[in-house]
Each structure stands twice: as structure tokens, then as C-alpha cells.
Design a protein around this nucleic acid. Structure first.
Length: 544
DNA sequence: CGCGGGACTTGTATTAAAAACA
DNA sequence: TGTTTTTAATACAAGTCCCGCG
């Protein structure tokens, strides 16, 4: 491979674009100005109103200032970035207004870069690289209540990069006048380049695209492991139910946690370093404050209410009735604890996964999520199938099955900003189409009357034509209605994550073959590339 | 057994491109 | 054909899980 592409160097602001401190224009040194532009670009974003973001930004910004600037600029509230902000808006507007030729030129340059840096040779196969560009410097945007939001993500230089390639290959060259941090030849790992990021101190990698052999094989293995779980899941369920009765607390906790992971598709829940990240939890790290127990709620008995922030600070809220034994165990786990105490104080992911490993080779907590997602899709597709359905109706059924999985896995999205409007537009279209339909029906009636009167060939043809027109309008109307239903049901649900990461693609491929649905209706180009192995492999009778 | 480092997968938000529309 | 809306691609953050060490 040719190594990564570095972020473009900083281009100083034109002199006419001013930064103001305390109402007065002030020329910043290049390093201070660069960091200021990161903030200026985000002025319209909610982040810049958050205290922590502002505080972290200001602290890191000051580090880039000259001593003079440091003395002068002491209060972020007195900083006025609005001219800079407007400048960037104008730039982006100008980009949109560029001529066709200019746009074409940029496109060609990107394509050239992709051809040069976007591919590598692995085991004599040309493979697409996933992310060959180094992340540019900027302000860290942590999700949720992140203590480090606003900190400066520093520029990555060749001296920060470790290159991994085979010994006998032509080693990628660093840009002129620079050096790599290291060149190594480790064939036990899949990454091509790596660097240490300065916010969390974690390592970032350049790896291959999902369409690559190495990623595809791993993906396939993942689903094979989940299928092996299918064969022994009954046994495992029997055992954890049995363990609810164990006299050992650690075993009861393990069994109840596993029940949640299985039934609710919760994530494992590793421990996190306090103060380094947003406060989020998974199953093993649930705290007392995250659940409430209701011996009776409405018509149901033994209801557990979950309310916590999971990965990416997405809220998980669910009320579910559980078996009496689980409920009694939970009451026991809660005894003499404070809200901020761990619910499962005798359990962590390492203990749980060690146990799972003993139950089945390769079994870990996340396999349950894969298994339950895939088996749900398969079941739902069977239930929703209707051979006489039109193609759009079949696709709606598929999306509904997909949606059932997304709900199980709690894959949410913020409702699109334009959702209401776009829904209204669609409704208008439906109304119009309905009017069109009734008009067409009237016309048919008239044509029929005409034919009755004249009985000639011409009028007969006219009737046929009107019939066809009605049929076409009816189809269009149905398509629109299906679309509206689909969109409404999808308001806050993200289907992509489960489709890409949890659903054995062979289930979808088989379904397409069985019901004569073109695969392009289910998977777009990228997805077909990623799932090429499955498209090759699965026949219509494939069973997960 | 706890801890930290490391490698890899999963996840949402943002941006760019394509498609639909007027 | 230009504009708006929708969809696809990208970016990069945030998880999981494993391993080696003291």
C-alpha cells in the first residue's frame, strides 16, 4: 500500500476576515487562528453552547496562542468568531455554485487519489482500503455528556504513523522531508497503518474495506458462530434458568444478566474509566438506579422498568414482565444498595464471557445479539410473507421484519429535521393521486357510455385505454401509501445498523430468491459488495 | 485477578451524491 | 435544467473482547 493521505495543510484566513476580541479586531498567529477556525465552523452547532465544550476548547486553544495572545485573550465570551463563520458559509455556498467543469475537476482529483491510495495488495489480491485518509485536526465531538468534548484533536504527522506492510513489499514512502514513526511487518494483524489519538490515548487504524476478503471471511465466521449458538441455545437457556436457583450469589447474578442479554439483546457492558468518557452502561455495568421493580403494573405481574443510557448515550427504555424467580432475584440484588451501586456487583464481562466460553466454543455476550437479531429476521420474514403481494408490499414486509430487529436492538435515530414536512408532502401527493383516480374513473364511465351508444372500434379502444390508465394510477397510489406507512413507522428507528452488522445476509438473499425480489431492492451497491460472499453462497432454501 | 494496551466491530451524525421534482 | 429531497458514502466515536503482565 502507499500509506495514508494526510489532511491538507492549514490555509490562513484572508486578511479581510477579522476576529474580534472584546469588540476590537485582532490578528491571530497562524496556530491560534487555525484552532479558532475549528470553533468558528461550529458556531451554529449546539456543542458551542455547552459549558464543558467551551471550557475544554478554550483551555486547549490557549495552549496554541503566543504569550501575547494568551495575556490578551482571557474570556471566550468576549471572542467574536462570526466573520470567520460567515466566511466558511460563503465558501461552502461558493462550492455549491461551482460550474460543472470545476466540479468535474474535483471529482477527477478525488478519483485519482482513490486510485493511488485507496487500494492495496494483500495476498496478491487488489483490495479496497476502508479509510485511507488521516483524520484532520479539529475539536473533539464526544457523544452525550462527554467530559472531553471540545478538546483539540491535534494534527497527525508522518512521525506519528506506524506503517504495517510485508517485508518484501515496496514500503510506502513518507512525504518528502518526513519520516514514519516506525515501519513494521506484523502479519498477525490486519491494519496497514496506525496512530495514537490524543484525546483518549487510543489507537486508530487504517484497515481494509468491508468488501475485502479478510473482512468478509470474518463476517461469515461471526454468523457461523451465531448459528452454532442456535443449536445449543435451548440447553443454555435451561441452564441459566436453573442457575436462578443457585445458592451462590455470583451464579444467580450471572444467570439473570445472561437472561437479559438473551431476552432483551442488551450489550455486555464493560467497565469504563470514570471521567474519561460519557456515563453509559450495558448489562453487566447496570446500576441500581437504572431499574425499577413493580410487583404489579396494570394487568401484568413482576414488571421491570429499564431506563439507562447505552452506547452513544442512546436511551434504553423498556418495561417488561419477567418470571417470578428473576424478579425475586433482582429484589435480592438490590438489597442494601445505593442508587449508584452496581446491580450485578459479583459480575463483569470477563467473568460472564469466561462462563459462556465454557458453554460453547467461541461464545461471548455479543453473539446473543447477533443470534437473536438474525433469528428474529428469519421468523418475521416467514410470518409476514404473502405470495400474492406486489413487489412494493413485499419490500414493506421486509422492512417491517428489519424494523422488528432494529427495535429489539434499540437502534434509534433522531427524527430527521424535515420529517413532518416530508410526511406532509407525501400526503399531498397521495391526495392528488386519489383525485386523479376518481377523475379517471369518471372518464371511464363516460367512455363506456360513449361505447354503448356508438359500438364502434374507436370507442372500444378508448374504454380499454381508460381501464389501463386507472390500473396504473391505482398502482401508483398503492406505492405511495406503502411508502407513507413505511416512513411513518421508521420515524425514530434506524434500520442500517442491524442490516449491516447483525442480520445474516444469507437470510435476506434467500428471501429475495424465494419471492423473486431483485437483490438490489434490499441491498444497495456498497451492501452488495460487502455481502458478496453471501450472495454467492445462499440458495432460496437457506436456513439460518 | 485486575489492569492497561491493542485490535477489531458496531454505531450515529454528517457530508456528498443521486434521484425526484417543478 | 436548476432546485429540492432522498439516499449513499464517509467520518469517526464508542463499544466488545482478548492478551500479557505483575
Amino acid at each position: 500500500h502507499k500509506g495514508p493521505v494526510f489532511a491538507p495543510l492549514y490555509e490562513p484566513m484572508p486578511d479581510k476576515v477579522k476576529f474580534y476580541y472584546d469588540g476590537k479586531p485582532m490578528k491571530l498567529s497562524a496556530p491560534a487562528e487555525e484552532v479558532a477556525t475549528f470553533f468558528a465552523k461550529m458556531l451554529d452547532h449546539e456543542y458551542t453552547t455547552k459549558d464543558i465544550f467551551r471550557k475544554n476548547f478554550f483551555k486547549d486553544w490557549r495552549k496554541e496562542m503566543t504569550s501575547e495572545e494568551k495575556t490578551k485573550i482571557t474570556d471566550l465570551n468576549k471572542c467574536n468568531f462570526s466573520e470567520m463563520n460567515e466566511y466558511f458559509k460563503a465558501q461552502s455556498e461558493a462550492r455549491k455554485q461551482m460550474s460543472k467543469e470545476e466540479k468535474q475537476k474535483i471529482k477527477e482529483e478525488n478519483e485519482r487519489l482513490l486510485q493511488e491510495y485507496g487500494f492495496c495488495l494483500m495476498d496478491n489480491h487488489k483490495e479496497r482500503i476502508g479509510n485511507f485518509r488521516i483524520e484532520p485536526p479539529g475539536l473533539f465531538r464526544g457523544r452525550g455528556d462527554h467530559p472531553k468534548m471540545g478538546m483539540l484533536k491535534r494534527r497527525i504527522r508522518p512521525e506519528d504513523i506506524i506503517i504495517n506492510c510485508s517485508k518484501d513489499s515496496k514500503h510506502p514512502k513518507p512525504p518528502p522531508g518526513t519520516k514514519w514513526k516506525e515501519v513494521r511487518h506484523d502479519n498477525k494483524v490486519t491494519w496497514l497503518a496506525s496512530w495514537t489519538e490524543n484525546i483518549q490515548g487510543s489507537i486508530k487504524y487504517i484497515m481494509l474495506n468491508p468488501s475485502s476478503r479478510i473482512k468478509g471471511e470474518k463476517d461469515w465466521q461471526k454468523y457461523e458462530t451465531a448459528r452454532r449458538l442456535k443449536k445449543c441455545v435451548d440447553r443454555i437457556r435451561t441452564q441459566y434458568r436453573d442457575d436462578w436457583k443457585s445458592k451462590e450469589m455470583r451464579i444467580r447474578q450471572r444467570a439473570v444478566a445472561l437472561y437479559f442479554i438473551d431476552k432483551l439483546a442488551l450489550r455486555a457492558g464493560n467497565e469504563k474509566e470514570e471521567g474519561e468518557t460519557a456515563d453509559t452502561v450495558g448489562c453487566c455495568s447496570l446500576r441500581v438506579e437504572h431499574i425499577k421493580l413493580y410487583p404489579k403494573m396494570d394487568e401484568q405481574e413482576y414488571v421491570v422498568e429499564f431506563d439507562f443510557l447505552g452506547k452513544d448515550s442512546i436511551r434504553y427504555y423498556n418495561k417488561i414482565p419477567v418470571e417470578k424467580r428473576v424478579f425475586k432475584n433482582l429484589q435480592l440484588f438490590l438489597e442494601n444498595k445505593q442508587p449508584e451501586d452496581d446491580l450485578f456487583d459479583r459480575l463483569n464481562t470477563s467473568i460472564l464471557n469466561k462462563h459462556l466460553q465454557e458453554l460453547m466454543d467461541g461464545l461471548t455476550a455479543k453473539v446473543f445479539r447477533t443470534y437473536n437479531a438474525s433469528i428474529t429476521l428469519q421468523q418475521q420474514l416467514k410470518e409476514l410473507a404473502c405470495p400474492d403481494d406486489s413487489l412494493p408490499a413485499k419490500i414493506l414486509s421486509y422492512n417491517r421484519a428489519n424494523r422488528a430487529v432494529a427495535i429489539l436492538c434499540n437502534h434509534q435515530r433522531a427524527p430527521p429535521k424535515t420529517f413532518e414536512k416530508s410526511m406532509q408532502n407525501l400526503q399531498t401527493k397521495i391526495d392528488e393521486k386519489q383525485n386523479q383516480l376518481s377523475a379517471a374513473r369518471k372518464q371511464l364511465k363516460a367512455a363506456k357510455a360513449d361505447h354503448k351508444a356508438s359500438h364502434d372500434d374507436k370507442s372500444k379502444k378508448a374504454v380499454e385505454l381508460k381501464r389501463k390508465a386507472i390500473q396504473r394510477i391505482e398502482e401508483q397510489l398503492m406505492k405511495l401509501q406503502v411508502q407513507a406507512t413505511d416512513r411513518e413507522e421508521n420515524k425514530q428507528i434506524a434500520l442500517g445498523t442491524s442490516k449491516l452488522n447483525y442480520l445474516d445476509p444469507r437470510i435476506s438473499v434467500a428471501w429475495c430468491k424465494k419471492w423473486d425480489v431483485p437483490i438490489e431492492k434490499i441491498y444497495n451497491k456498497t451492501q452488495r459488495e460487502k455481502f458478496a460472499w453471501a450472495i454467492d453462497m445462499a440458495e432460496k432454501d437457506y436456513e439460518f
